[in-house]
Nucleic acid binder design. Structure first.
Lengths: 141, 141
DNA sequence: CTTTGTGCAAACGATTTGCAGGATG
DNA sequence: CATCCTGCAAATCGTTTGCACAAAG
């Protein structure tokens, strides 16, 4: 636990970010969950017991973390911005019925053949979004 | 031209949508362009010469068209909702520097191997987003 | 003639901003 | 101690809504 806190502090510093309790809390929260929360959800979670961060600060922390490439935005739903502390390339699964989002490790999908794409494009990367029904949503009862 | 207008009217009717000048205009506009405009861009385009539709109507037309599955929403940029009259399955290319979006026909990418995915998921479909630099953005000069 | 769509303006929710005081390196 | 961050409240942006009138089938 303490180890991990130090680790997070080092990461923030190495990116040239000042370590404030609020920024730490936002990043730690994001590292500890895999449900790709929205800014509001992070805010609510952080202030659940004791108020620790204001709304404006959560937003600005997310921006700072994003610029430092420690956090990325995930856009799979209409008008909803979600955040993810996993910045390694990976794919996403989205449940059409409950909206849950899960990461798909890069190696879980075979490589994609891009050779037939227009040569006018200088391709930098790609990402797959898989839609379907998750475990829990498959049984109606 | 006239042919196409009749065609659009038939399509709208076949989906049980009333044909109003505004709704027609929104759909025709979307069918005639390939740049995946936002609601605002459609509105501006429609009212360029003569005011034809109000903001609220463009939004509600888009909703009606979307429910009729004649139009879909495309989400590739942070906080921006774009619309596309191409409802066939296809992939997207997005230029990282100018933000332009282009369709990639389904067959232009080889099939993807989903066999290694968690069997807990009932997969309904997938879509690939390719990032890179478009033709025009490759020459800095 | 019944139902649905339109336009206006007000309402809304998520995100951003300005600014004064406080914490960080 | 200079710089950057926080919190508050007000501002902003895109989208939605309520309602009276108009148009579509």
């Amino acid at each position: 636990m303490q180890q991990q806190a130090d680790q997070i502090i080092q990461t923030l510093k190495s990116k040239g970010l000042r370590v404030t309790p609020q920024r730490f809390a936002v990043y730690a929260n994001l590292l500890g969950r895999y449900d790709h929360p929205t800014a509001e959800e992070i805010l609510k979670d952080l202030n659940q017991a004791v108020p620790t961060s204001s709304q404006a600060t959560v937003y600005s922390s997310l921006q700072a973390l994003r610029q430092a490439n420690l956090v990325r935005e995930v856009l799979l739903e209409e008008g909803v911005r979600r955040y993810d502390a996993n910045v390694e390339p990976h794919h996403h699964f989205r449940c059409q019925s409950c909206g849950a989002i899960a990461d798909i490790p890069w190696q879980a999908l075979g490589p994609i053949d891009l050779s037939r794409l227009s040569s006018a494009w200088d391709v930098a990367g790609y990402e797959v979004t898989v839609q379907g029904r998750c475990d829990r949503c498959q049984r109606p009862a």
